[in-house]
């Protein structure tokens, strides 16, 4: 096997020979094999257009929203091929946080947090809902800031607060994995630090896969790092190893700022 790609023992998620094409023959992701360690932060890095977002979005099958996308390969979660269960079931197990904060503008903060339950048609008792909202908002350290404005719309919050609300929304349904697509790229440095601290805190209970093109962010908070280039997974290993001693020349070039 390729010694640039680390083998993860008893992974939570296993990606097997995964290729994704937006049009026939044009691959955005090519033949990726990787395991994801439970209760860790795995960062996916690479220059724009390298396929990192595409790979991330395939993990909860978001690519299916756009027709003509072709996917070959398998992804296993709890020994189950995610392409063989229903997408709505899968997405409850794998939550997602997006590049730009996107709380639902027509819902209150409270409703945003329990939006997963609402959208999934789950009717809950008021007391249970209250509990979920409080717990989720505490998990993202937003409770103290918004507890008096729970029934206001989330749009008055700052960008950083909105993004934490979106994390809370993803957490509320107790997913096993949270996918994050450059969650801090639209935020200022202070808000970014807060989110980063939050992620480190969250990995105790969740498994996080994070796409970023901020190398220092990957170095600061991730346990494992992937480097992708032109749709291929070039290198995957423990973050400290990759940053101190990259195996592949292209990884080294990227990390030293030669391209990207």
């Amino acid at each position: 096997m390729n010694d640039a790609i680390i083998q993860i023992n008893s992974p939570l998620l296993t990606i097997e020979r995964l290729s994704i094409a937006y049009e026939p023959g044009k691959y955005a992701v090519q033949d990726v094999n990787a395991g994801i360690k439970k209760n860790s932060i795995t960062a996916i890095m690479g220059p724009s257009g390298c396929g990192k977002s595409t790979l991330l979005r395939a993990i909860n099958r978001m690519h299916e929203l756009y027709p003509n996308t072709e996917v070959v390969g398998k992804i296993f979660l709890d020994n189950e091929n995610i392409f063989e269960i229903s997408a709505i079931e899968l997405r409850r197990k794998i939550g997602m946080v997006f590049q730009r904060p996107n709380p639902f503008p027509t819902m209150s903060i409270y409703d945003n947090v329990i939006a997963g339950y609402k959208l999934n048609g789950k009717k809950l008792k008021r007391s249970v809902k209250d509990e979920i909202v409080e717990k989720s908002l505490k998990e993202v350290a937003l409770w103290e800031e918004v507890k008096d404005a729970l029934f206001k719309r989330g749009t008055f919050l700052s960008g950083g607060q909105q993004q934490r609300l979106c994390v809370a929304r993803a957490l509320a349904y107790k997913p096993e994995i949270i996918l994050m697509d450059e969650p801090t790229s639209a935020l200022d440095p202070i808000a970014t630090t807060k989110i980063e601290d939050l992620l480190v805190e969250l990995k105790k209970d969740y498994t996080i896969i994070l796409v970023t093109h901020n190398m220092s962010q990957a170095a600061r908070i991730s346990d494992y790092s992937m480097f992708m280039y032109l749709g291929e997974l070039i290198e995957y290993g423990k973050t400290k190893n990759i940053f101190s001693n990259p195996v592949d020349k292209r990884t080294e070039a990227y990390l030293t700022g030669k391209f990207g």
Partner: peptide, 16 residues
């Protein structure tokens, strides 16, 4: 606060 995982029936109705 564990929410029951008996989603199957509900999911089927939603998909329908």
């Amino acid at each position: 606060m564990q929410v029951s995982i008996s989603h199957k029936k509900l999911d089927l109705r939603r998909v329908l």
